[in-house]
């Protein structure tokens, strides 16, 4: 019984700037572990978004580029088309991907660009101070919706995974979460699958990860995990929404 656990090689020794209990750290580690396991560290290029994860390049030990807000898929398209042998992934939050970068991600997915996107959905703009995001839950309080999100004039949260899955272009689209150990393990499997599809040059892949933002939600890290499970998961169901043909 028992097993060893060490920090993956892809992660630097830097202490992250994330708040205590922020699931960005878990997502970072999963990506690093997957890249280690696939042995692709030497040919991976990551693309940092704008948001809390803008400094993520400090925590990884492979090539990184920083994109303008929401434009990571455009940058990834460029890199992947010039150098199809490189493994390219973008790591974007919901403020970045679902709001300003909506056009980029939809067209990149529709063109079937063969890179991987890790989409962190924590229902809020983290870095800028907890403003309402397109994925904010109905009645959720944020700094720009102090009385709770009113769906009458702001609509319902956007389900990115389901929306992209409606595209006819083959893709691997899945939604996972990081709220419990069993989900974390599944999330890692999904990320590995996404990178594997890219390695096989099969299709675009997107892994949405339901995450927490204890600071901006105004909760303790544990309450935030519970809130994500109780409030977000019923609306954002987990699962695989699309796989390329033959799988």
């Amino acid at each position: 019984m028992g097993k060893t656990f060490q920090k993956p090689q892809c992660l630097a020794d830097t202490i992250t700037h994330y708040c205590p209990g922020c699931t960005h750290g878990i997502a970072h580690r999963l990506v690093a572990e997957v890249i280690d396991e696939l042995g692709i560290r030497g040919r991976t290029v990551g693309i940092a978004p704008v948001g809390c994860a803008v400094l993520m390049y400090n925590y990884f030990t492979f090539d990184f580029q920083e994109a303008a807000h929401g434009r990571a898929p455009a940058m990834a398209t460029g890199i992947k088309r010039v150098r199809p042998d490189l493994m390219v992934f973008t790591y974007q939050g919901d403020g970045d991907l679902a709001s300003i970068g909506m056009g980029e991600i939809v067209h990149a997915a529709n063109r079937g660009e063969k890179f991987t996107t890790i989409f962190i959905n924590n229902a809020v703009y983290g870095m800028t101070g907890g403003q309402m995001a397109p994925t904010t839950m109905p009645d959720q309080r944020t700094t720009t919706s102090p009385f709770g999100r009113k769906t009458v004039n702001t609509g319902m949260p956007i389900k990115i995974a389901e929306m992209l899955a409606t595209l006819e272009t083959p893709a691997y689209i899945t939604r996972q979460t990081l709220t419990r150990p069993k989900y974390v393990k599944k999330a890692k499997k999904a990320i590995k699958q996404a990178f594997t599809y890219q390695m096989e040059n099969r299709c675009f892949s997107l892994v949405e990860l339901i995450s927490t933002c204890p600071t901006n939600w105004g909760m303790t890290p544990l309450d935030a995990l519970t809130w994500a499970e109780e409030k977000m998961l019923p609306y954002f169901p987990l699962g695989v929404f699309k796989t390329p043909e033959g799988d």
Binding site: R41, R43, V45, F62, Q65, L86
Partner: peptide
């Protein structure tokens, strides 16, 4: 250039950023 460390045969990663 972020051409991948294998391409450059280097252990030093490259970073393109403006922040």
């Amino acid at each position: 250039a972020t051409s991948g460390m294998d391409t450059r045969k280097s252990n030093q990663r490259n970073l393109v950023k403006t922040l």
